[in-house]
Structures are given as structure tokens and as C-alpha cells.
Write a protein that binds this DNA or RNA. Structure first.
Lengths: 190, 190
DNA sequence: AATATAAATGAATATTTATTCACTTATAAA
DNA sequence: TTTATAAGTGAATAAATATTCATTTATATT
């Protein structure tokens, strides 16, 4: 018998992300996904029960990937600023290099497909960062304000950088990394 | 003859925004809009040629509204920091009080409906702010880095605050305003 | 090599959603 | 009042899109 092609699912996910980039979740049709993935529409239904489970599957995949990307090379035992910069840069680089995933996650959050439990699970991804920020406050290195707002400050800026890098065809040079990190750091340092 | 009800279009826009908030542009159907606006689906087509022109019309309306909201009480002749804080707060308050508009604009930008010319027109809304930032640099009050990144820094943070205020049911108290502005200001000041 | 099994196909069908239209209702103008 | 005109209605139709299925194709197993 013929075995399932283990490349199909990633292929389908990639095609879906490409369409999201081009015209948002609103623009996704199963025929378009199939065409982009160079397979027949019927094949989609071998790998997914329906459109919803394709999108939910992709969302979970994106969430999992980003979680591992954000904390690459991060040593929780190292100095605060080193760890903070590592995570800051990881998130930024990840969101730039996986830009479609970022767009998809963002749109999925306000789509008819997401469920409440999923939202909660995604919040947990940032737990190690939340802990680090608490440490920074304990060591009096950063402002003693609610971590919620410190996290808001940091991630809001990162997201916007990633978007503008893409929409305005910029390149993330070390200089641009540095100046943007400086803005963020000067904001939070005590 | 019967005259056109001048409340219908705002009513339809409001209904559409409410649906966007609930389930994104992907979730909008003409029947749902009609139901939410408490009119017949056919009536939608008296005021709009089709779904696309409804959405485009709403987008233009949102863009126009926000432009006027952002620069309320702003005196280009006043001190830099005063002007900067005024605009910062205006944008933040506007995005919180017109949250659905913000979501809609954001999603519309990566939807099948937007056109390139529209994107360009929207960029111009921020021109007065760009000028103010240039002045701040000339007066050596803020860091001498590309205004593009200063604007990215500022708006990214504001957007994220607005989103989190809504998604986590926070309230924008004067204290929260202040601490968030402080984060932003400490980031950009020279 | 032959067989069995599941993948893959894409046209056909089902479902959803946009749009139309014959009809009713309201109201400015005569 | 009466009339003419356009708004308003919602069921009917058209169009788009999701899903199925009869058929073909590939390949592990025997």
C-alpha cells in the first residue's frame, strides 16, 4: 500500500501561510490552498477533516514553533540584561523570519476558529520571560511596575518592528537591532 | 417619495464593526451584518453596491475618524514634550475607545479588499506627528535616530496597550497612562 | 510479479453566502 | 387627499466555496 507523504502537511501549512500573507485569513479557500500546495483539493481532506481543523492545526504548529524559537540560547542563570537581550532578539528575529506565522497567529486570535482554551495555552509561552522580568525587578535593574505592562511594552514594540521590516522592505541590520533594543532598554531600565 | 434614512449607513457600519470584533473580517457575512443592524439583507444593497464597497466605505470612514481624533487639542506651536504627550495620549485613547475600528483597519490592511493607493493615503495621517518628531530631534530633546523607528517604537507600544486593555479587561487609569507614557518617553529621550 | 491497501485526483455535489427582484410600505410633492 | 417615487423587505436565485466520492495511481507486502 501507499504510505502517507510526510511532507504533505508542512506543504499544506506553507501554502496556507503564503495565502494569509497575501490576503489574510478572510481570503483563504480550500481550492486556493490546494492550488498553492500543488495538490488536488480532495487530498486536503486526507490530511484534515475540514477547513477548520486545517487552520487549527496550523495555529498549534505555529504556537509550538514560536515557543521554541523565543528561548533559543537563553540561559536563565546568566545576567539579567544578557538574558533579556537574548530573548528580545530571539522574538524579533523569529517574528521577522517567520512573518507569515506571526500574521496568521494574530488574525487567528480574532477569527471564528479560535477557542478560549487555546488563547490561555498560548499565554503560557511567555512564562519564562515573565519570570525573567520579575527577576529584573527584584534586582532593581528595571522599573518596578506591573510585569504586565513591561511585557506589553516589549512585545508591542517587537511586533511593530517586524511588521514594518516587512511592509517597508527594510533589513534588520545589527545597527537597527541595536538602536531598537536601546529604545526598549532605556524605556524599562530603572 | 420616501427619503433615504441617514442613520442607516452609520448603523450598518456599527453592525459590521461589532462583527469584526467578535470574529474578524473572515467572519463577516452580509446576512449577519443585516441581522445585527436590524434591517433586511436587501436593504444593504440600497446603500452599498456590494460587500466590497461596504467594507471599503467603512475603512475610509475609520481612517477619516482616526485622523481627526489623533490631533485633537494638539498645538504645533507648543513645547515638544507637551505636544508629544498630547498626541501619544490621543492615539491611545482613540484606539481604546474605538477599538473595533482599530481591529478592522488592521485586518483590512491584510485582506483581499485593500488597494495600494489606500495604503499610501493612510500613511499620510501621521504626517503631523512625523514633523513633530523631527522637531524633537532638531531641539536635541530625543534620540537622533531615524524617525521611522521612533514612530515604530511609539505606535507599536500604543497598539499593544490598546489591545491588552481590551483583551484583559483593564481600565486606562491616569496611573496606567502615566507609567506607559514614562516607558515610551524614557525610551526616546536623549 | 501479483495483490491489497491507501494515497491522490478532480469533477460532482452540498453548503454557504452574495446578490437580485417582485412586492409592500412610507412619504415628499402635487 | 392622491399620486409618484424610492425605501424597505425577505424569499428566490446566483455565485462561491466546502466537501464528497468514484476512479486512478503508487507502493508496501506477500
Amino acid at each position: 500500500m501507499k504510505l502517507r507523504d510526510e511532507n504533505k502537511v508542512p506543504q499544506i501549512y506553507q501554502a496556507t501561510l503564503k495565502l494569509v500573507r497575501a490576503s489574510g485569513i478572510a481570503g483563504i479557500t480550500m481550492q486556493a490552498v490546494a492550488k498553492e500546495a500543488k495538490i488536488a483539493t480532495g487530498t486536503l481532506y486526507i490530511y484534515f477533516n475540514n477547513k477548520e481543523s486545517l487552520l487549527v492545526g496550523l495555529f498549534n504548529e505555529c504556537a509550538k514553533n514560536s515557543a521554541s524559537g523565543f528561548f533559543r540560547n537563553y540561559d536563565p542563570g546568566g545576567p539579567f540584561k544578557t538574558g533579556f537581550r537574548t530573548i528580545w532578539l530571539n522574538i524579533l528575529q523569529y517574528r521577522i523570519s517567520h512573518f507569515e506565522e506571526m500574521l496568521f497567529i494574530e488574525q487567528f486570535f480574532t477569527s471564528p476558529y479560535i477557542e478560549e482554551a487555546t488563547k490561555m495555552a498560548v499565554k503560557k509561552i511567555f512564562d519564562p520571560l515573565r519570570e525573567l522580568i520579575q527577576r529584573g525587578k527584584d534586582e532593581h535593574l528595571i522599573k518596578d511596575i506591573d510585569s504586565f505592562w513591561l511585557l506589553t511594552f516589549m512585545t508591542g514594540n517587537i511586533n511593530e518592528i517586524a511588521k514594518r521590516i516587512h511592509y517597508f522592505n527594510k533589513k534588520l541590520t545589527p545597527e537597527i537591532e541595536d538602536l531598537n533594543f536601546q529604545l526598549c532598554w532605556d524605556g524599562i531600565k530603572s
